[in-house]
Design a protein around this nucleic acid. Sequence first.
RNA 1: CGGGGCGUAGCGCAGUCCGGUUAGCGUACCUGGUUUGGGACCAGGGGGUCGCAGGUUCGAAUCCUGCCGCCCCGACCA
Length: 492
Amino acid sequence: MAKGLPKRSEDYSQWYNELVKKADLAEHSSVRGCMVIKPYGFSIWEKMQAALDKMFKDTGHSNAYFPLFVPKNLFEAEEKNAEGFAKECAVVTHYRLKNDPDNKGKLIVDPEAKLEEELVVRPTSEAVIWSTYKNWIQSYRDLPLLINQWANVVRWEMRTRLFLRTAEFLWQEGHTAHSTKGEAIDETKQMLEVYATFAEEFMAMPVLKGVKTESERFAGAEDTYCIEALMQDGKALQAGTSHFLGQNFAKAFDVKFAGKDGKEEYVWGTSWGVSTRLMGALIMAHSDDEGLVLPPKLAPIQVVIVPIFKGEEQLAQVSEVAEKLKKELQALNISVKYDNRDTSSPGWKFAEYELKGVPVRVAIGPRDLENGTLEIARRDTKEKAIFKVEDAVAHINQLMTDIQENIYKRAIDFRADNTTEVETYDEFKKVLDSKGGFVLAHWDGTAETEDKIKEETKATIRCITLDFKEEAGTCMYSGKPSKGKVVFARAY
RNA sequence: CGGGGCGUAGCGCAGUCCGGUUAGCGUACCUGGUUUGGGACCAGGGGGUCGCAGGUUCGAAUCCUGCCGCCCCGACCA
């Protein structure tokens, strides 16, 4: 077990916190609730970005960038949205500092430099973007408008956790405008599919696709679609959302287009986003008491080669084999690190790369040189085996696929084991307290019932899944009629 | 915003209750040597505004007052 890393079974949340820090993903900054994403953590995020960005481009979207600041009058234009975020907005009220006359060397806010119109630091960009779209859209020929931006946003959260909820976070937000309702809904669903595909194929993390209930819906949206993942501690995590905005923002910002018939109509909108929260999801979906377990497709280093040697001469001999292997793997587009530092021992390196989740480790030592072999270890199962040097490349290449599939399968099995259907409220509570996970139960469709359940059990309705099957029943809480079972869980 | 905790070397901590050598330990770092198939060892060395500001005292990391910051637990949320 990794030095100083708490066990998941003893304290899951401490395990998470420590892992994030020890694996060099991120650390707390001197600013409350904000984090520094460290190079290793950031390179995972970059890999996520690259994969997602390609998927966005492949579905016809273009990137753009809109400002960080939102004038208050713009921000409040869409009332529901403004209301929803009002409690957690950072606001810029002044534009200048000056020397403190009473305290040499210190600065104070210059009271004379008060802004007439306060600027809200964006908690999301609908307001700025829709006020811009007003100028970009005149006719049906300008539609659809398919824009994404990679940006930071600020939400003044009361309680924060590295990656899972920070006051400032990085994300992408797609904002599209369409001429018909149907097209906008299709876009909303398409992007949900993109997210689900990304989660499953790249993060190796199975997700439920569904629709949020009214109380969980994005403020200002008609419908919020989401992907929900299950973490190893049995809590659910919303990993991405895609919103059908109807004409709400178009009306708030007066974005109309002339149709072929010359009639003016409001455009239909969508917005969708995933954030650095995905880092938290990735960590909690696969990692173990030894450290991170990264899917090969997102691992900054896919293969690490550790030489075992005495003296420079031996290192040179080992290096010959190692460098050759490295080149051959790189030719297959596999990222390889050859760690030939003589400043730490092989054992130390083994532990270190396990902590960091490197999928495959190769060790080459004098014994191997004699036998023409090397040792290959996989992070997900901790299996080690000796291979002929000439078989290594093919085997490692195969491992990239195998590990990706194995951890995905493991996560699917875990989710299956932790998804429970219940009929009664007693059963519901028992499952929540014993194993957690997704709990499927009948619900009468009212916000009141949902609230009561949340209050009493801390579980929320994660979503009504897209493959929701109609099945008459009675609500486990109120006994009123229900159309089918929805997914409950305690969530992050 | 409530409750709790913490702030002493890069990191992790002891020392604070009960004031008193030159502020200590582990780890990391530097030098030299021996090592290296699962977090090596020996020897030597460098590194501190004890969170900040006042106060009490012959003397403050330690006591008093005020402030600041961060973390954790709750209410709110992606």
